[in-house]
Nucleic acid binder design. Structure first.
Length: 311
RNA sequence: GGUAACGUGGCGGAAUGGUUACGCAGAGGAUUGCAAAUCCUUGUAUCCCGGUUCGAUUCCGGGCGUUACCU
């Protein structure tokens, strides 16, 4: 078998200039780009996600962008499976895979692996969720710790999200979620990655976010949400959570003016950016941190030879 | 100019003669198949000057400010 290359990982808070940098890097090292963002996958949401425009991609192949319907749910596992496959394909073409995005969990999955827990049948899952809705989080949690005492120290009694997951896994597989976690295996070696985190100081980021929000509105974000609404997506679908949708809906319903709406979108976005930075500070300790202003000189320093791996 | 009401953290907003709720924003943290989600923790305030009182943000007087109405 011939040589394969490292996998380049580019993370960073929203609006830090990741996508742009990835394109430049791909051009330099002959790479192809894979989306690592849980919301960029949706076909029908383009403006609010700040998806790279085709004419800006400079003929660099982009995968997993806007390929999935907002009507369906997507998961970390789905992403990981597709991404591993794509990495192989790109390697076979002797090109370099570049993963770019803002979803810390996806990066963790590609680096540390994700346990293969049997997928929970829809009916089974919905039954549990309906029950949760009926009895409320408090009672649900009490049932959960009876079913699986291991979660007590792991999940906050108020965390509905994780409670549901732990419950369905234990109930369906008869094995605790936390027992499953112990079986996690990595898909790659530590040395297979070049991990880059783009950082941007808070004040600069706020300015960039505000500019971006204004741009989104002038590009037609309101219309995008109008169309999205016509699809009548069920409220429990993940796509509803794209920042801007619920805010613009309030505007469309006449509950607030456009300035308030913009402000709300900015606030939500910087809260998201804050969580991304917290994740990076504590979960991406060994990543190479690059200031967003230094990306130009950083790009020059990257040598293609250093990306090659002998197999 | 007169009368009245009000003046509480960055903002909104309770309460009280003796530990200043709470919400939002901000900060820190968690994060294994919904993650742009979900959850945890958290700093900072009673307009100013006097008086009454053991003790005033609260009661009284004055000042300043805001708002409403009147002239």
């Amino acid at each position: 078998m011939d040589k394969k290359s490292k996998i380049i990982l580019i993370a960073g808070p929203t609006a830090s200039g990741k996508s742009n940098f990835a394109i430049k890097l791909a051009k330099k090292v002959d790479g192809e780009i894979i989306n690592t963002d849980s919301m960029q996958i949706y076909r029908e949401i383009k403006i609010l996600n700040a998806r790279p425009k085709v004419k800006e991609t400079k003929n660099i192949k982009h995968y997993l962008y806007g390929f999935y319907s907002v009507k369906k749910n997507f998961s970390t596992g789905d992403w990981l499976k597709k991404t591993i496959k794509l990495i192989k394909q790109i390697h076979n073409k002797n090109k370099i895979p570049i993963l770019v995005g803002g979803t810390g969990l996806y990066f963790r999955a590609i680096i540390n692996g994700l346990v293969k827990i049997p997928s929970i049948p829809k009916k089974f899952r919905n039954k549990i969720r309906n029950n949760h809705r009926k009895i409320g989080q408090k009672k649900f949690y009490n049932n959960l710790i009876k079913l699986d005492p291991l979660v007590i120290s792991k999940i906050s009694p108020n965390d509905a999200h994780r409670s549901l997951r732990a419950y369905e896994v234990k109930k369906y597989t008869k094995i605790s979620l936390y027992k499953w976690f112990e079986k996690t295996r990595k898909n790659f070696d530590e040395n297979d990655f070049l991990k880059i985190y783009i950082d941007c100081p808070r004040d600069d980021l706020i300015k960039r976010i505000n500019t971006r929000v204004n741009k989104m509105i002038s590009l037609g974000a309101v219309n995008e949400v109008k169309k999205f609404r016509h699809l009548k997506i069920r409220k429990d679908k993940t796509s509803n959570k794209v920042i801007g949708i619920s805010e613009i809906c309030k505007f469309l319903d006449g509950e607030q003016n456009i300035d308030t709406t913009k402000e709300q979108i900015s606030i939500k976005t910087r809260q998201y950016a804050k969580r991304q930075r917290t994740w990076a500070r504590n979960q991406m300790i060994d990543w190479e941190k690059v200031d967003y202003k230094m990306l130009g000189s950083f790009l020059k320093k990257i040598k293609i030879s250093s990306l090659k791996l002998d197999q």
